[in-house]
Measured scan of single mutants.
Amino acid sequence: KVKIAGPGLGSGVRARVLQSFTVDSSKAGLAPLEVRVLGPRGLVEPVNVVDNGDGTHTVTYTPSQEGPYMVSVKYADEEIPRSPFKVKVL
């Protein structure tokens, strides 16, 4: 029921550039959304989540370095389908 889309989860994500993606939970009811961005060697990146007021949230983060990242998206305390997402930061 929760959908996710945006360039911040795709290929070609650049280090030190603001990345974003949208989480659409409009068909999933009200529940807490939790997003974690883990970088190389367990680095935890700050994440900004904005409630758009229409059942969607815009998530932004800036990867601080190149390497493999994991983006975990939980809704109602459960990983959404395909989460955690593997993101290769260049």
Rank of each mutant, 00 (worst) to 15 (best):
K1L: 10
K1P: 04
K1A: 05
K1S: 06
K1R: 08
K1E: 07
K1I: 06
V2K: 02
V2A: 01
V2E: 01
K3A: 07
K3L: 09
K3C: 11
K3V: 12
K3G: 06
I4A: 11
I4R: 00
G6R: 03
G6V: 03
G6M: 05
G6P: 06
P7K: 07
P7C: 08
P7E: 10
G8M: 03
G8P: 03
G8C: 03
G8Q: 03
L9G: 02
L9W: 04
G10N: 11
G10H: 07
G10K: 08
G10Q: 07
S11N: 15
S11V: 11
S11M: 10
S11Y: 09
G12F: 12
G12M: 14
G12K: 10
G12P: 09
R14G: 05
R14K: 15
A15S: 09
A15N: 04
A15W: 06
R16T: 14
R16L: 11
R16D: 11
R16G: 14
R16H: 13
R16S: 11
V17M: 14
L18I: 09
L18G: 08
Q19M: 00
Q19P: 00
Q19W: 02
Q19L: 00
Q19V: 02
S20M: 11
S20A: 09
F21Q: 01
F21P: 00
F21A: 00
T22E: 08
T22F: 07
T22S: 07
V23C: 05
V23W: 00
V23I: 11
V23G: 00
D24H: 04
D24F: 05
D24I: 05
D24G: 01
D24T: 04
D24K: 03
D24A: 02
S25I: 15
S25V: 15
S25W: 08
S26L: 06
S26Y: 04
S26W: 02
S26G: 09
S26K: 09
S26H: 08
S26E: 06
S26Q: 08
K27R: 12
K27L: 13
K27F: 06
G29K: 13
G29T: 08
L30C: 11
L30V: 13
A31P: 01
A31S: 10
A31I: 04
P32F: 06
L33H: 04
L33K: 04
L33N: 01
L33Q: 03
E34V: 13
V35D: 01
V35M: 03
V35F: 03
V35G: 01
V35E: 00
V35I: 12
V35P: 03
R36W: 06
R36I: 11
R36F: 08
R36N: 10
V37L: 08
V37H: 00
V37P: 01
V37D: 00
V37W: 02
L38Y: 14
L38M: 13
G39P: 02
G39H: 02
P40W: 01
P40V: 05
P40I: 01
P40M: 05
R41H: 13
G42C: 06
G42I: 01
G42Q: 14
L43E: 14
L43F: 10
V44E: 15
E45D: 08
E45C: 14
E45Y: 06
P46N: 14
P46T: 10
V47T: 08
N48Q: 10
N48F: 12
N48W: 06
N48P: 02
N48T: 13
N48I: 11
V49N: 04
V49D: 05
V50G: 09
V50L: 11
V50M: 09
V50I: 13
V50F: 15
D51N: 13
N52S: 07
N52D: 06
G53H: 13
G53R: 12
G53A: 11
G53E: 12
G53F: 13
D54P: 04
D54F: 07
G55M: 13
G55Y: 08
T56E: 06
T56D: 04
T56V: 12
T56C: 11
H57Q: 09
T58A: 12
T58P: 01
T58M: 10
T58N: 07
V59P: 03
V59S: 01
V59M: 05
T60C: 08
T60N: 13
T60A: 07
T60Q: 14
T60D: 06
Y61E: 01
Y61P: 00
Y61H: 03
Y61L: 00
T62Q: 06
T62D: 01
T62H: 04
P63F: 02
P63W: 00
P63T: 01
P63E: 01
S64E: 10
S64A: 10
S64I: 09
Q65C: 09
Q65R: 12
Q65D: 07
E66Y: 08
E66H: 14
G67Q: 01
G67I: 00
G67D: 00
G67P: 00
G67R: 00
P68Y: 15
P68N: 14
P68T: 14
P68S: 15
Y69M: 05
Y69R: 01
Y69V: 04
Y69E: 01
M70W: 14
M70L: 14
V71H: 00
V71R: 00
V71I: 15
S72L: 03
V73S: 00
V73D: 01
V73H: 00
V73M: 02
V73I: 12
K74M: 07
K74C: 07
K74L: 07
K74N: 05
K74E: 03
Y75R: 02
A76N: 13
A76Q: 10
A76H: 14
D77Q: 09
D77V: 02
D77R: 10
E78F: 05
E78C: 10
E78V: 14
E78W: 04
E79R: 03
E79M: 08
E79W: 06
I80M: 04
I80V: 11
P81L: 05
P81G: 05
R82Q: 15
R82L: 11
R82D: 15
R82N: 15
R82C: 15
R82A: 13
S83K: 01
S83P: 02
P84D: 02
P84M: 02
P84L: 02
P84Q: 03
F85V: 13
F85N: 02
F85Y: 10
K86Q: 15
K86L: 13
K86N: 15
V87T: 04
V87R: 02
K88H: 15
K88R: 15
V89P: 04
V89W: 02
L90I: 12
L90P: 12
L90Y: 07
L90E: 13
L90R: 15
L90S: 09
